[in-house]
């Protein structure tokens, strides 16, 4: 199943969400500090990112921006689970985040809804890979015995 990076500054959320997603056969790596998440990101392969919006040290919009720079030109789906920082004093932060992520949820999210969003996010990536393979086949670039495709 998928390897998921989870970032939230509340340790209890990380613990319980980690246990919840592990029960559905996902592997999770959890971080309370966005700086550590960014340091560790290149060391493993991740299929999905779930992150808070308002965090100490690096805010959600900057974290996502830096993460997307590291991921490019590939795409990894990002889900934001925001803790209710929905005031208009955070307007530019939230608008920036929304533009650069795939799903936006607010706390407290029901476990079913999170699982459904995780499945949809992972399906996006699978579909995207299939589309790219199809494109590669069309262009004569895809070799079925290749170990890694694009």
């Amino acid at each position: 199943m998928a390897h998921i990076l989870i970032l939230d500054d509340v340790p209890e959320i990380l613990d319980t969400m980690g246990t919840f997603l592990s029960a559905y056969e996902h592997t999770v790596s959890v971080f309370t500090d966005p700086r550590r998440a960014l340091d560790n990101f290149p060391l493993s392969h991740f299929d999905l990112i779930i992150t808070d919006a308002l965090m100490p040290h690096i805010n959600g919009d900057e974290f996502i921006c830096r993460l997307n720079e590291m991921i490019a030109p590939k795409r990894i789906p990002i889900i934001v689970l925001s803790g209710g920082a929905t005031d208009n004093k955070n307007k530019s932060l939230l608008n920036n985040i929304l533009k650069n992520v795939d799903f936006f949820l607010t706390k407290p999210v029901a476990p079913d809804q999170l699982l459904d969003t995780v499945n949809r996010a992972l399906a996006l990536q699978t579909q995207s890979t299939k589309d790219k393979q199809f494109e590669a086949v069309r262009l004569g670039l895809y070799k079925s015995n290749a170990r890694r495709v694009l």
């Binding site: 509340v10 969400m17 999210v109 029901a110």
Partner: peptide, 10 residues
């Protein structure tokens, strides 16, 4: 909301 979230998962 940060307090309720872990209860939901637990």
């Amino acid at each position: 909301n940060n307090v309720l979230q872990p209860i939901f998962f637990a």
